[in-house]
Computed example of a mutant assay.
Amino acid sequence: MTDKCDSIMIANCPDIMIYHTIDGKCLSVSPACQIILGYTPQAFKNYSLFELVHPQDQARMQRFYKMLLEQPSRDILSHRWRSRDQNYDWFESSSQIVSDDSSTETKIVTLSRYIPEHRRLEKACQNYAEYADVARLIAIGETTANIAHELNQPLAAIVNYVGGCLRRLEKSHCNSKEVYSALEQARTQAEHAGKIIHGLRNLLKKRELQLSTVTINSLIHAILNLIEFQIHNDEVTVQLQLTEPLPVIRVDANQIEQVLLNLVRNALESMRHCPRRELTIATYFLSENQEIKIEITDSGEGFNEETAQKMFNPFFTTKAEGMGIGLSISRSIVKAHQGRLEAISHPTGGATFCFTLPKIHDEY
């Protein structure tokens, strides 16, 4: 009775259920694959899973199954399957290792749920809004901290000047109580303002980094998924030259994703009016410095020497509607992670923004 119930549930499951080996060989698949992707179960079995997944998702899927072997989990993998009509559709998949006493080969059951385009767009917009909120809050914090720093200097001068006047009045024959009282009030108010701003600066100090162990390539894939619609709409060709494997890094993943997002969005905007739109993202391991290097290269207009000297300054921008804080914030984040952020303009056109992050010692 149990086997019969299982067969009925599999046959009527709206999601695609795949029974396969670790290397992607399909052993059986539920009928839903024909409804969603257009393949009969028998035709689907003629393909390796890695043949049907989008080329840009293959490495992530392979890592997903490798991590599943090392530590079983209920993580969700977002990826694209190729349908019978050669289009790619988005799915969210979860997998579980299945015990099979009759074989030493590892077997896996993967459940893939189709994600309609409108739901994926809603999710991307929600994620983008969250990143925008992070950027806005960081910008407010940095701006207010800078203002506080600038105001503290004249306030300190006021305190010193007023204090000097008070000392002169004490030594001279000028005993005007009204003048003395007014200067005393001025010093009191200036000191009070200084304490308020000092407290404001302490309040706005950057929070401690929320460190976690990740790979930079996984963060790159995450932000590319986030802005895939903008890449598609701008008709940009993306080339990934990601070194595999790379040492793991210990960073605040949200902040490093924000840096990547800022740099990639800047690259996309620089190519908006160019006939050739190519974005290349590369990662390397620099053994001499024990660092991970990330390069983001565009085929845009590049920048001149004057811009190069000012581009990382707060509020400097060449955009009509830009605030000029993205690169400044990005450099601050990278610096907080003991890294460096630099920019190079190429004589033939385009620019490369690169930054480094230290690897975790004794992990590679």
Rank of each mutant, 00 (worst) to 15 (best):
M1C: 08
T2W: 14
S7G: 04
M9T: 08
I10E: 06
C13S: 10
P14H: 05
I16P: 00
M17W: 04
I18E: 03
H20N: 12
G24M: 02
K25Y: 14
C26N: 15
A32T: 06
C33F: 04
T40V: 05
P41V: 07
Q42S: 10
Q42I: 12
A43I: 08
F44I: 09
K45L: 10
L49Q: 02
V53Q: 02
P55I: 06
D57H: 00
D57P: 02
Q58W: 01
Q62K: 15
R63I: 04
Y65T: 07
K66I: 03
K66E: 11
L68H: 08
S73E: 09
D75H: 11
I76Y: 07
W81L: 07
S83F: 07
N87I: 03
F91G: 01
S94M: 12
D100E: 14
D100S: 13
D101M: 11
E105G: 02
I108M: 05
V109E: 01
T110Q: 06
T110D: 04
L111A: 08
L111M: 13
S112H: 04
P116D: 11
R119H: 15
R120P: 00
E122G: 05
Y128K: 14
Y128I: 12
Y128T: 09
A132R: 15
I138R: 15
E142C: 01
L169G: 06
L169T: 05
L169C: 06
E170Q: 14
N175I: 13
V179R: 11
S181L: 14
L183V: 01
L183P: 04
Q189L: 10
H192T: 08
A193P: 02
H198Q: 13
H198E: 13
G199T: 09
K205M: 09
K205F: 04
R207Q: 11
R207F: 04
E208C: 08
T215I: 03
I216A: 03
L224M: 08
F229G: 11
F229N: 14
I231F: 05
H232V: 10
E235A: 11
V236H: 07
L242I: 04
P245V: 04
P245D: 02
P247W: 02
N254I: 10
L261M: 12
N262A: 13
L263M: 07
R265G: 01
N266D: 06
H273Q: 12
C274F: 06
R277F: 05
E278F: 03
I281F: 00
T283G: 00
E291Q: 13
E295I: 01
D298K: 08
F303E: 03
E305L: 12
Q309F: 10
M311N: 01
P314E: 03
T318L: 05
K319R: 12
K319A: 15
A320W: 08
L327P: 00
S328V: 02
I329Q: 06
S330T: 00
L341E: 01
L341R: 00
I344F: 12
I344T: 12
I344G: 03
H346I: 12
T348P: 01
F353W: 15
T356G: 00
I360K: 04
E363L: 07
